[in-house]
């Protein structure tokens, strides 16, 4: 592993070096306390010390709204909308968000591979950066450390006023060519401790969920939940979508578009005629949590929650995903002990 030291003062120069090669998409400050991934225009606007961005980089590969085809109503004909690869350097991505892209890759590759997503994904280069866990992060509980470089071409680990820069792939080697940095051979530090933990190894979560189908926590959580779907909206591994028609003002042309949808919304499971197959908020909460810790995990062996903490941080009712999971663990432990 080749290591260099990138002084924070030289970060804009490094960003400019990357921009000379490809489009760079990186975190920017937004408002007073928020951060968002945007295409870099000014190298000195890039922020690498941030707790989490509002939306993960999912938004580039699976846009909130996207045109699937355009139609002509007078001709009753259509053309599919072709998409282009994003083909950019994603700079300053946290390990859990890189992991989340891997989860989405699975969902859009398995069974029938999906053209739009997989085309957009082409050419993406990942330059990860370590983070300091705040009171919402718990990715350590799903085996994603703050300084985990998995999936990245280059990884930056914060050390003093700068970063230990590690090159992990030939693509990464190409990227830094011609950018002068001192070599670093003192290893890299762990960048912080998690304040939130799930209290069993992730490999046991599916089994605990299995026993928790009728747990009281679903109904209790539903008492607080307002069913707004914000948890779905901010989740980096949520990928469910709906498709709608949009007709322009001339009523001769229009397009079919898909947009993000969420299983916490009542209408999500509604069919024509009005039947709603997941009517109770308790059932919808359970479905959300089982989607993250059981259903897909039973096939892949990995939790589909990456521990970013966004759903908890954004919930208007302060529902904590870690709180729910730990409650299930504690009830499960008591249930196991009880018969003795």
């Amino acid at each position: 592993m080749v290591q260099f030291y990138l002084d924070a003062e030289r970060l804009p120069a490094f960003v400019a070096h990357l921009m000379a090669q490809k489009t760079v998409i990186a975190p920017h400050a937004k408002g007073q306390k928020s951060f968002t991934f945007e295409t870099v225009a000014e190298p000195d606007q890039v922020v690498l010390d941030y707790p989490r961005v509002m939306q993960s980089i999912r938004k580039f590969f699976l846009p909130p709204k996207e045109e699937l085809l355009t139609f002509d109503l007078t001709e009753n004909s259509y053309e599919t909308t072709e998409v282009e690869p994003i083909d950019a350097i994603f700079l300053g991505v946290h390990s859990y968000d890189v992991a989340a892209v891997g989860r989405l890759d699975y969902n859009f590759s398995v069974g029938s591979p999906e053209k739009n997503y997989l085309t957009r994904r082409q050419g993406a280069v990942f330059v990860g950066v370590s983070f300091v866990p705040d009171s919402y992060h718990f990715s350590g509980s799903v085996n994603i450390r703050p300084e985990d470089p998995t999936g990245c071409d280059i990884f930056l680990t914060k050390l003093f006023e700068g970063y230990v820069l590690e090159v992990h792939t030939p693509t990464g080697e190409e990227l830094i060519k011609g950018f002068d940095m001192p070599a670093h051979d003192a290893g890299r530090p762990a960048t912080g401790h998690f304040q939130q933990h799930i209290y069993v190894p992730q490999t046991r979560l599916s089994e605990i969920m299995e026993q928790s189908y009728d747990n009281d926590v679903w109904a209790e959580t539903a008492e607080q939940c307002v069913g707004c779907g914000t948890c779905n909206l901010v989740c980096p591994t949520c990928y469910c979508f709906n498709v709608d028609e949009a007709v322009d003002v001339t009523v001769t042309k229009g397009h079919r578009e898909r947009h993000w949808d969420g299983c916490m919304l009542r209408k999500f499971s509604e069919v024509a005629g009005g039947e709603v197959f997941r009517e109770s908020l308790a059932g919808r909460q359970r479905h959300r949590i089982f989607r993250k810790f059981k259903y897909i995990s039973d096939t892949t062996g990995q939790p589909w929650c990456v521990g970013c903490g966004r759903c908890t941080a954004a919930c208007p009712a302060h529902i904590s995903i870690v709180g729910i999971v730990n409650r299930l663990i504690s009830d499960h432990a008591q249930a196991v002990v009880a018969p003795i």
Partner: peptide, 17 residues
Amino acid sequence: RRMKCGVGKCGHCQINS
């Protein structure tokens, strides 16, 4: 169920897993 996409992607028709 609500089989919106038909190809196992959109999530609407899920019954548990």
